[in-house]
Amino acid sequence: MSVSDNDKSVGLGRAGDIRVDLLEISKMVEPGSRVLDIGCGDGELLDILVNERGADARGLELSREGVSASVARGLSVVQGNADTDLVDYPSDGFDYVILSQTLQAMRDTRECLRQMLRIGKRTIVSFPNFGHWRVRLKLLLGGRMPETETLDLPWYNTPNIHLCTIRDFVNLCEDLGITIEQSYTFTHYGKLSSRSMPLWYTNLFGDQGLFVLSYDDDGLDEWIDDNPAGA
């Protein structure tokens, strides 16, 4: 099974036929915006963005099957690898750059974040929370790599090479000077605004984190100097 096949099976709660995090993300995008969806799969989110939000939305997808399906349904998607191809996109070319449930599969997480913040005025990131209590419990009591509804593949066959907790991600943003404009967590019971909940709570009970990020463009240059690509 290839990485790309796995992307589709990163299991998440579903509302009807659409992943809940995708629905939430689509609502965050201002109508008519320019959007780049990285790791867009078969174009599920792009379709909503284009047809329901009137967005000028493009996709980048690793798998041939995903790209074919997307283009065949009329979406603008390029077959490529986010680890290497984001450098080709012009700065501030998009209003939003979206990376849903793919951050943990990126080879160079920080570089990926930097490129997204450079390309987009805002970056929307969602990822499975490795700090969820079920994950902690499985490792603590079972002594084995946790497999959950969200992380449903065995350790030897997972594309998720850079898993993190919500707290880890918040700390990374602080370290890199990234502004967290909005943050949410999803639990079994729905979406929670992190503003109303302490971090220890969301990090324990959130299945996944959803963040809207931005970065001061001047600072981005400094970051480039401090963190050369691939560092």
Binding site: R64, V71, Q79, G93
Partner: peptide
């Protein structure tokens, strides 16, 4: 083809690209 796509992306063009098996 990727060279073309890279240039189109750099020009912020509306581009799709597929390599077909």
């Amino acid at each position: 083809s990727r060279d073309i796509v890279r240039a189109l992306n750099a020009a912020a063009a509306d581009v799709s690209f597929v390599e077909i098996e």
